[in-house]
Amino acid sequence: MSTPPGEYYTEERWQNWLERIEEEEVDPENEDSARLLLNLQDDAAIAIAKIITDYEEGPLDEETALEEIDDIRQIVLEEVEIDDEEKLMLIDGVQTSLVCVFYAAEEFVAEGPAAEGTVTDYVEAAADAEAEEDLDAALGYCVQAGTLIIDGEELDVDAAAELEYGLVSEWVNGLDSLQTAMSDPEVVEEEDEESE
C-alpha cells in the first residue's frame, strides 16, 4: 500500500516528538534519552525511505518525490523553540544529521547513485575535506555516500565510529539512520499506548 502524497510525515508528528523531548528529562548518557533522540531521527529517515521506495516502485514520479522530500525537510529543519538550551543542542544535532539524508535522497531521485567509489571512499574523502575546512565538499562526499547506501551499499559502522567528532560524523550518523530505514522501513512508535 503506497502512502498518499503529503502523508509521509506531518508537522504534527514532528511536534509530538519535540513535546516528548521537552517533557522528559533528557540526558544523552542515559539509554532511554539516547533512544528517544535516535527515534526522532530514525522516524524522519523512515519517511524519506518510504518516499524513495514509492519513487522506485512507481507511485511517485521524480517531481512529486522531490516535493515530498522537501516538505519533510521544511518541517524537520524549522527552528525549534524550546527553552532548555541542552535539549535545543541535542535536537540541533538530530537536525544536522538529517541534512545529509535529505540531500542524499534528492540526489538519488534526481541523479541516481554515485557512479563510482564506495561508501567508505566517500566518507574518508568527506573527513579529509572537513579537516581542510572545506565543508561544502565534505557534505558533497557524504551525499554521494548516501546515494550508494540508498542503492544498497553498506556503511561500515566501525569506520564511521572512528571519525573525529564534527559535521561529517553527524552527517554519517544520519546516513546510518537512513541505512536502517532503507532496510527496515517500519514506523517508530511515537507514543506509548498507555498514555492515550
Rank of each mutant, 00 (worst) to 15 (best):
M1H: 09
S2L: 11
T3Y: 07
Y8A: 01
E11Y: 11
E12W: 12
R13E: 15
W14A: 11
N16P: 00
W17C: 01
I21E: 04
E25S: 12
P28T: 00
A34L: 10
L40R: 04
L40G: 07
D43P: 03
A45M: 01
I46L: 02
I46Y: 02
A47H: 10
A47F: 11
K50L: 14
I51Q: 02
E56K: 09
E57V: 09
G58I: 08
D61I: 04
D61T: 03
E63F: 07
T64A: 13
A65M: 06
L66V: 10
I69V: 15
D70F: 08
D71P: 08
I72A: 13
R73W: 11
R73P: 06
Q74D: 15
V80M: 04
E85Q: 05
K87L: 11
L88C: 00
I91G: 01
I91S: 00
G93L: 02
S97R: 12
V101Q: 07
F102P: 12
F102Q: 07
A104Q: 05
E106G: 15
E107P: 03
G112V: 10
A115L: 11
V119T: 06
T120W: 03
D121R: 00
Y122R: 10
A125M: 09
D128I: 09
E130R: 01
D134C: 06
D136S: 03
D136K: 06
A137Y: 10
G140W: 03
Y141A: 01
A145N: 12
I149P: 07
I149T: 04
V157G: 13
V157A: 15
A159I: 03
A159V: 12
A160I: 00
A161Y: 00
G166V: 09
L167W: 13
V172L: 02
N173S: 15
N173G: 15
N173M: 14
G174R: 02
G174L: 01
D176T: 12
L178E: 05
L178G: 05
Q179R: 09
Q179V: 02
Q179S: 11
T180P: 00
D184G: 10
P185H: 05
P185S: 14
P185N: 09
E189F: 04
E189C: 02
E194C: 08
